[in-house]
């Protein structure tokens, strides 16, 4: 599995970068130099390591994380029951929509009715209903939206355990 291979190339410095840079990246003229100094490495080394971690897909992104709701948009979890025979075809259809920010296959031991779970991110709140209708039309399958009614406070950061 590609992800498992990626884990093997993480060394102690990479771990420190991932653990300490999940937030709080400085806003200043040379932020990488400042962040690198806090980690005890040089600016060039931090830049090279970030590029390598991105290339190896250990990091999916490096930069600002946006809350689309605060821009007037919406971020909504949605699910589908996709027949196995059409699985890849539906994956391709769903992933082709730019509004689909993440998509996961999920399975449970209790015959959960939905096996595809994705997040729709749209610039306006109305965009979600439109995206749901478009995906239903393109796939021929019903889409169930699960908008968040309330978010409970959690500590978000995950330390590297690989």
């Amino acid at each position: 599995m590609r992800e498992a291979l990626a884990a093997a190339i993480i060394d102690a410095t990479d771990r420190a970068i991932i653990d300490h840079l999940q937030g709080g990246f400085p806003i200043c003229e040379r932020p990488y130099a400042q962040a690198a100094a806090a980690l005890g490495i040089g600016e060039d080394e931090l830049l090279e390591r970030l590029q390598r971690l991105l290339d190896a897909r250990v990091l999916t992104r490096f930069g600002p994380m946006f809350q689309v709701e605060r821009m007037g948009g919406a971020f909504v979890l949605a699910a589908m029951r996709v027949p196995e025979a059409n699985w890849q075809q539906v994956v391709d259809i769903v992933n082709a929509f730019p509004a689909v920010a993440h998509n996961y296959r999920r399975e449970s031991d209790r015959a959960c009715p939905f096996n595809m779970w994705f997040v729709l991110a749209t610039e306006t709140a109305d965009g979600i209903a439109a995206a749901v209708r478009t995906i239903e039309a393109a796939s021929g399958l019903p889409v169930f939206a699960f908008p968040k009614l309330r978010e409970y406070f959690v500590e978000m950061k995950l330390p590297v355990r690989a």
């Binding site: 937030g23 990246f25 490096f62």
Partner: peptide, 10 residues
């Protein structure tokens, strides 16, 4: 926030 977004699996 601004920073690294890790691939959880990796």
């Amino acid at each position: 926030r601004i920073g690294a977004v890790p691939n959880h699996y990796a």
